[in-house]
């Protein structure tokens, strides 16, 4: 397996596990956290911060998510999903920009 594929496969194994494997939070909620889209409040505000600027997360954000009836294990899983989801989108955006840049340089090698 080429080195690059090993890295991508390792990230895919992580994303598949956190989205689709067994968890305390439902797979549906985990998918919404992963996508940073469509979560109910107050989870939506916390997970948007995790995805978009985690340095802005406060104790109050975590407390609000817990007070809405979710367990610590559920919040742990949803935060992991939001972090992995956003990072996977960054990785894919970088690879897409690279594919576009190299396809124009060498059209015969477009893939």
């Amino acid at each position: 397996m080429p080195d690059d594929d090993r890295k991508r496969a390792a990230l895919r194994a992580l994303t598949d596990r956190v989205r689709n494997g067994k968890g305390e939070a439902s797979a549906e909620l985990r998918a919404l956290a992963f996508d940073n889209n469509g979560l109910p409040p107050p989870l939506d505000a916390l997970m948007a911060k995790v995805a978009e600027d985690a340095s802005q997360v406060t104790d109050t954000d975590l407390a609000a998510a817990l007070a809405s009836g979710h367990t610590e294990d559920q919040i742990f899983e949803l935060v992991v999903c939001a972090a992995v989801g956003e990072s996977t989108r960054l990785y894919d955006a970088g690879l897409a920009a690279l594919a576009e840049a190299t396809a124009e340089e060498n059209p015969a090698d477009a893939s």
Partner: peptide
């Protein structure tokens, strides 16, 4: 570039957990 993007993905995950 692909290798650097993998490093970037790994640390964007870890940074988010560290801050959250």
């Amino acid at each position: 570039i692909r290798d650097a993007l993998a490093v970037c993905a790994a640390f964007n995950i870890t940074d988010r957990l560290a801050d959250t």
